[in-house]
Amino acid sequence: MDTLQLQNFARDIRVTTLEAFKTPLFGHIGGAMSICDVLAVLYGSVMNVDAANPLLATRDKLVLSKGHAGPALYATLCLKGYFSREMLTELNQGGGRLPSHVDRTKTPGVDMTAGSLGQGFSAACGIALGDRISGLATKTYCIVGDGELDEGQNWEAMLFAAHYKLDNLTLFVDYNKRQLDGYTDDVMSLGDLRAKLEAFGFVTFNIDGHNVKTIQNAITRGQEQAVKLGKPLAVILNTVKGKGCDFAEATGDHHMTFTLEQLETTIAKLQSEVYTV
């Protein structure tokens, strides 16, 4: 996809995410909306995946470690044809295939189960290493939340990724500056995140996480550098919690309830944003 197509895809992911939320009328809407642009770039341009063969060994893989952002991934996978639009109504319903937190055993296209925060990047390291051992030229991606970086396991995994020179692995930090109890700076400061990631041995980019062109360039240039230097890649996505959804942006809440009218109004506003040349 070109940049305009990616912008429209990101908008469609937001709209479809909100459509899915019409069933439960509650959920982790803020953290889902903040990652729609990186999902658009990954599934629109970057990742080598095939909706008809969701378990193909040679595909690129994504671990959504901040598993509560599942609805945004479900919207993306639905738009890519992994499952029907009707299935979106199963979001957070008993017996449904779209649980609040991502589950590889329930949803076609979800590569790894996550939800207990801090665990996904380790699994991503294992996937990247396993594919390398198998001689596969795949890429593995992982999206972690900024609040999630409070969990020490991430930092164990970062040591591992650098030690094993996993240059086929890209870590995205959804840096929306918020976590459940408030601003990350108030709950647990991350300090100079870029310097920390660089010190841990990552090629590191610190970019606007809502600009699809910037995201795409960071991945392309970053992966070139990573391979050249034998390092993993980290991309800090400076984002806004709830991006594109005014009522979620206004509160920055981690989990919230909302009305059908709020969703309809937001969807109509988003749909009026048509990106053209």
């Binding site: 893989k61 996937i127 396991q153």
Partner: peptide, 14 residues
């Protein structure tokens, strides 16, 4: 903790 997570990832690759 990381070791068991890496093991999970390795399992995903067969």
């Amino acid at each position: 903790a990381n070791m068991l997570g890496v093991a999970a990832g390795l399992s995903l690759t067969g």
